[in-house]
Simulated scan of single mutants.
Amino acid sequence: MTRSRIVPDPIARQPWRVILLVVAIGAFGQIVLYSAAGGSLQPWALSQGIRFFVLLGAALGISYVPERIWKASALPAYVVIVVALVLVELVGAVRGGSQRWLDVGIKLQPSEFMKPVIVLACARFYDMLPPNETRRFGAIWPAALLVGIPAALIAKQPDLGTALMVCGGGVVVMFLAGVPMRLFIGGALALAVAAPIAFNYVLHDYQRNRVLIFLDPESDPLRTGYHISQSKIAIGSGGIWGKGFLNGTQSHLDYLPEGHTDFVFATMAEEWGLVGGCLLILAFILVVRWGVNVGQHATTRFARLTAAGLATTIFFYVAINLAMVMGLAPVVGIPLPLVSFGSSAQMTVLLCIGVLMSIDRQNRRAVRW
């Protein structure tokens, strides 16, 4: 008897390997949050777990949306999110000194939705262009505006980390669409020239301090450099095998700030050591690799660009957070997806995975036909 007769096709055709891998990452994140709370489901692990499985169910539902819907809704969704970002600037809720939320009964952060939407919008733009038009100037400036407008609005909130991720997702799609390399080199040189001006006249004081602390983390270890110093201590003290579950000291004794959000990897590494950290990184690598493979097997240009852009968005989340907690990049407030406490990054990454599963479903259907 064939598998299709034992298990219903809609269930059998799910990419169960990546689904189980995502569940494993999410479950491990809840274990870390349980420990960070001193061995309690409250206030973080239980609510994180409920949100995770609800959003995972939503991602599985999204996987049944056909590609034509994503293609038709890409640019309208982009316009809606840009309007929402403008409304954030006008009437947005302020929290922690930043104006990033719209209060519509629940607090929404439009900048999080822009991370996957910018990929869909840029992919749709280049899908509408004939391939031989991609290397012309008319194929570059509209995409630059698509990326630049929301990035500028997000940077003004201020949320530099999210603005950089929006730029990164858009630039990756532009590169894969065939925009000439010389333009990227020219853009990099222009950024290098503009960086000192931006540092002195554009960045806020706390953002400048983060850059300075990144360059010299020991210059102010008890104030602006405290997060990085304690994060390095936590990671280093875990050694190869870690101190053991519930035996971390940096987080349990409140030496490590934000040990359940942005610096959750340091909390994990102290208890699970280098081995636990490497296994978690490997799990994320496998998820990103699956996303890239989905793009390589896609049958349309829109699907290829979308899959590659969304896989890169997940990669940026992980890479920026790890570089930040290890002192290899300035602190920019990017959480570790599926592990850090909070719904925003969890929602964005599971939305990306849902769209990737949708493209993967279409790929497998095309092969069967």
Rank of each mutant, 00 (worst) to 15 (best):
M1Y: 08
I11Y: 12
R17M: 11
V18Q: 11
L20Y: 12
A24I: 04
A27D: 05
I31W: 07
V32P: 01
W44H: 14
A45P: 09
F52V: 12
L55S: 09
G57L: 11
G57Q: 09
I62N: 09
P66M: 04
I69H: 10
A84H: 00
G96K: 01
V104M: 12
V104I: 14
I106H: 03
K107V: 01
S111T: 08
R124M: 12
R136W: 07
I140C: 07
I140K: 05
L145Y: 02
L145T: 10
A155K: 06
P158S: 15
D159V: 00
A163C: 13
L164E: 03
V171G: 03
V172D: 00
F175R: 05
L176Q: 01
A177E: 00
G186P: 07
G187R: 02
V193R: 08
A194N: 10
F199V: 06
N200T: 14
Y201M: 10
V202N: 06
H204P: 03
R208T: 12
T224K: 12
Q230D: 03
W241G: 15
G259H: 05
T261V: 05
T267W: 00
A269T: 11
C278H: 06
F284Q: 02
L286P: 07
L286I: 14
W290T: 06
A298P: 07
R304I: 08
L310I: 08
F315S: 14
Y317D: 09
M326T: 15
I334C: 03
P337Q: 07
L338M: 10
S340N: 04
G342T: 03
C352R: 00
I353N: 01
M357V: 05
V367G: 08
R368Q: 13
R368F: 09
